[in-house]
Design a protein around this nucleic acid. Structure first.
Lengths: 162, 162
DNA sequence: CAGATGATTGATGCTACGCAAATGATTAGT
DNA sequence: ACTAATCATTTGCGTAGCATCAATCATCTG
């Protein structure tokens, strides 16, 4: 755990950078998303739900790292517009399984399309390949953190490239 | 502005992803930064000032994309702790030139050091090279956006792919 | 001198977010 | 079967960031 006196490579800190860019993206996204009745935070939730194909509210709260009560409000917004569905879990009927509706998937796609211009503007300095690289890195970071949250689900039994 | 029916490559949208990760980083950063009397937003400002070696308040407001009045408050915080200095511009004495003090540079370095653990946790899924790649991509995006703010400086006259 | 500009302050309001307490439904332990 | 714990939900409260507007002062420019 102590610092190995290896090479002392100048690892660049990208915290501030990330925050800065996220802000720029968010500011522009808000105005683009407003006509669709969505906010950036809704987009994030929808994206997670699509990528997972459904989730418990708790799991959602944990990956979004927000308070359970706030997740309720978030989902209420989305449910009011029929973008998601809450269904009781068959295993534990206290739980709600949240899933994207077809309308939700459509709206999400629409939003992403609308956001394309914004991203093009913000990421203008990157070419296509660089954007893909950035995407895969971010994806890896995001899902890397996810593993910890999925430990409880045990098995990838025979799953090939888990 | 219409969609060119070119190749329709599946360009992945990383807006939501970026936002998600920025949030995770910010949540953790806040608690780490608190003992240092800083907030994430202060860090961003200090970083910009260091990278530029000083800036006008207006320029700062424009790159941070925040309202001028809010920048004032931000700088007041930093000045109260002697982390920055406001000096009147010799050319236009209405303007303030903001610069990092030595104490500011130290505090920034301290904060980044304290943040290293947080980043290691969040970026745990990436190895050293990947982090460097991520850093350089983000850096490129950030400084790429800067050019737009420098439009007033006219020209990319003969610049090839402007 | 007159009007525009930069910095600053103060007031107002909105929104996000976390926290706590109460309720109803459901599951689990004994 | 009774009791305790768990999950989702609601409501209310408090804090904080941030935008916006209006007013003021110093300074520059025509």
């Amino acid at each position: 755990m102590t610092s190995l006196p290896v090479v002392n490579q100048p690892v660049h800190r990208c915290g501030a950078l990330l925050e800065h860019l996220a802000r720029r993206l968010r500011l522009r996204s808000e105005s683009v998303l407003a006509p669709l009745g969505l906010r950036p935070r809704h987009l994030v939730a929808l994206t997670v739900l699509r990528d997972r194909g459904g989730s418990t509210q708790q799991a959602l709260a944990s990956t979004l790292e927000m308070d359970g009560t706030n997740v309720v409000g978030l989902l209420n917004d989305l449910e009011a517009e029929k973008l998601i569905e809450r269904r009781r879990s068959p295993e534990d009927r206290r739980r709600h399984v949240v899933e994207l509706t077809e309308a939700g998937a459509k709206r999400l796609a629409k939003a992403e399309f609308a956001l394309a211009a914004v991203e093009d503007e913000v990421l203008g300095a990157l070419d296509h390949d660089q954007r893909e690289t950035l995407y895969s890195l971010l994806q890896q970071v995001a899902t890397g953190g996810m593993e910890a949250a999925c430990v409880e689900v045990d098995v990838c039994d025979e799953a090939p490239p888990c």
